[in-house]
Simulated assay, not measured.
Amino acid sequence: MIAANVVAWRRCGTGGQELRPGTKCFKGGAKVYVAGAYWGPGGDRVAVVGRERHTGRWIVIDTATRHLHSFRPKLVHTPRVLERLRETRRHGAGLGADRAAEASAVLERYARQYRAEIAPSRPHPDRCLCHACLTGESGSPVAPSSSW
């Protein structure tokens, strides 16, 4: 399968000037497994399996690709992940190593593109903690407005 991590901080709100940790369902940095992607509109949403932020239970949820990073092929050993996939009838989510590597690269490219599209004309807030600023991602639309 394809594994990824949830971004530590994400830009949101009007003009992307607000920062929030992780997502509503996952803590920042949480490892999730991609159960399926919606390739029609361009891979902007993926179904993922991961541990829920508040309860720690394994959940399957659709999330935006831009909220994930470090896509990579990973062999799944966790029985609860496989059980969740069977329950949601996504048992075909397993890919071969070559296909998983190709899909990981495509999803990483889409995620960078979608993060760069968040408020492209607005500067990042001072001391921005968004994923693009923390990692120096080349797709960052505008440099931070002040030096650190």
Rank of each mutant, 00 (worst) to 15 (best):
P144H: 04
V46N: 09
R20M: 08
T78Y: 14
R53L: 02
R99Q: 14
L129W: 15
H54R: 07
L82T: 13
V46C: 05
W9A: 00
A64F: 09
L68H: 06
K31M: 10
L82N: 13
V6D: 02
T88A: 10
H124S: 06
W9N: 00
R84F: 15
V76K: 08
T23E: 02
D62L: 06
V34S: 03
C128A: 09
S138I: 01
P141G: 05
R86E: 10
R109L: 04
T88C: 14
A3G: 14
A64K: 11
G136H: 10
R51Q: 08
K74A: 09
W58R: 01
Y114R: 04
A111H: 05
Q17N: 08
I118H: 04
G13A: 02
L19D: 05
E137P: 02
C12M: 04
R122S: 08
T135V: 02
A64I: 04
I61R: 08
A64N: 11
K31V: 12
R51Y: 10
V7W: 03
L129N: 12
A3W: 15
D62G: 08
G29A: 06
A97P: 13
V81I: 14
H77C: 03
S147I: 11
S147N: 07
V6F: 02
V142Q: 07
Q17M: 08
L68I: 14
T55R: 04
K27P: 00
M1N: 06
E52W: 11
E137G: 02
S145N: 10
Y114W: 13
A101W: 13
S147F: 08
L68N: 06
G136M: 07
T65R: 01
G36F: 09
V34T: 10
R51D: 01
V32E: 13
G22M: 12
A132I: 09
R11Q: 06
W148D: 02
T88P: 15
G15V: 13
E102L: 05
C130S: 02
S121N: 07
H67L: 05
V76Y: 11
A64R: 13
A143C: 11
T65V: 12
R80V: 15
D98N: 04
L82C: 06
E137V: 05
E102Q: 06
H91I: 04
Y33L: 03
E117L: 08
A116I: 06
T14W: 15
A116Y: 07
R127Q: 11
R80A: 03
G42L: 03
A30H: 14
G29N: 11
V81W: 15
L82G: 12
H77Y: 09
C12A: 01
R84P: 13
